[in-house]
């Protein structure tokens, strides 16, 4: 993706001069709108962060805080390392690890099976190609949310509840990735296969030595999208993990709201906000740092 601020000072300056005044006013308006928009996006999470640095009594009395408090170490320490639950094994760190495994496992699993399936569909003369295509793409019709009850029973009956496999596999059972790689492989020039065939390369060799390397950027882009998707899963992990040591950090967020609704204790607002900040940090950092891949992945995958 090209950077949008590809300024060309030479051309622009010649144009700017005659109506500099007008441009100035309109650019002030433009910047104001963008700043307001940025604040609208930024404020909620920023305030979650500032609030998370106060102790819960202050928050309880005064609500969300804009200043930075002195409880940063305490709240984040507690959110990350304080063990809760009967088995005393689940802390923020464990939940982060589980989220990481879910995010990476989901992304890698999805990419591997979709690359293979898309390869089969695009590059092979297949008897049941159309049938396979439709079998796979019908899955786009039905999000996990609407078939969640029977899915839950299937995973249970395989004894896969509270396992990473049970957590990840049902989420992979859709065609989004396959669809994306199919589109991409279709755009790869036919000459490549012909050349490879002439060189005597078989299907395996072509896939590993040629197709995968040229798909690298695409894979990276789709990896980021899938990782964020997996990390942010909510309903499914909430149902399928009953063992505290298997909780993901987003599942942990649910415990916060339940405690809030039950009202038996003064909610630990500071720690809750700290946990919320910890939960959004990894995917946000990935999206921000690998922005160009992320944008590419999003724009390409949703097409």
């Amino acid at each position: 993706m090209t950077d949008m601020t590809s300024e060309n000072p030479v051309i622009l300056s010649s144009k700017e001069k005659p109506k500099a005044k007008k441009l100035k006013l309109s650019s002030i308006i433009d910047h104001s709108i963008l700043i307001i928009g940025s604040l609208f996006m930024l404020m909620p999470v920023l305030m979650a962060f500032t609030t998370s640095t106060h102790d819960h009594v202050t928050i309880h009395k005064e609500g969300l805080m804009l200043s930075i408090g002195d409880q940063f170490a305490e709240n984040y320490g507690a959110a990350m390392f304080e063990k809760g639950g009967f088995t005393e094994t689940v802390d923020g760190l464990t939940m982060l690890m589980n989220s990481l495994i879910l995010g990476i496992g989901f992304a890698v699993g999805k990419i591997v099976i979709s690359v293979l399936a898309a390869y089969a569909i695009v590059y092979f003369r297949l008897k049941f190609a159309t049938l396979a295509f439709w079998i796979i793409f019908t899955t786009l019709l039905l999000p996990l949310e609407v078939r969640i009850l029977p899915s839950y029973e299937v995973v249970h009956s395989f004894g896969l509840s509270n396992t990473y496999t049970g957590l990840i596999l049902p989420l992979i059972a859709s065609a989004t990735g396959t669809f994306y790689f199919r589109q991409f492989f279709m755009s790869v020039p036919d000459e490549l296969v012909e050349a490879a065939k002439i060189d005597g390369a078989g299907p395996f060799k072509f896939l590993i030595d040629i197709l995968v390397p040229i798909s690298k950027t695409m894979v990276a882009a789709i990896f980021i999208i899938m990782f964020v998707f997996g990390w942010n899963q909510y309903l499914w992990p909430a149902l399928i993990t009953t063992d505290e040591t298997m909780f993901t950090i987003i599942r942990g967020i649910r415990q916060i709201i339940l405690a809030y609704a039950e009202g038996n204790n003064i909610p630990e607002h500071g720690q809750a906000m700290a946990l919320a900040v910890i939960a959004v940090l990894p995917p946000v950092l990935i999206v921000v740092f690998f922005q160009s891949w992320f944008v590419k992945g999003l724009v390409e995958s949703e097409k």
Binding site: G37, S38, M41, V45, Y234, V280, V288, V295
Partner: peptide, 12 residues
């Protein structure tokens, strides 16, 4: 600044 919220989970 305008895109990073994509990564925030809906329950958060």
């Amino acid at each position: 600044l305008l895109m990073w919220v994509y990564a925030v989970a809906p329950p958060v």
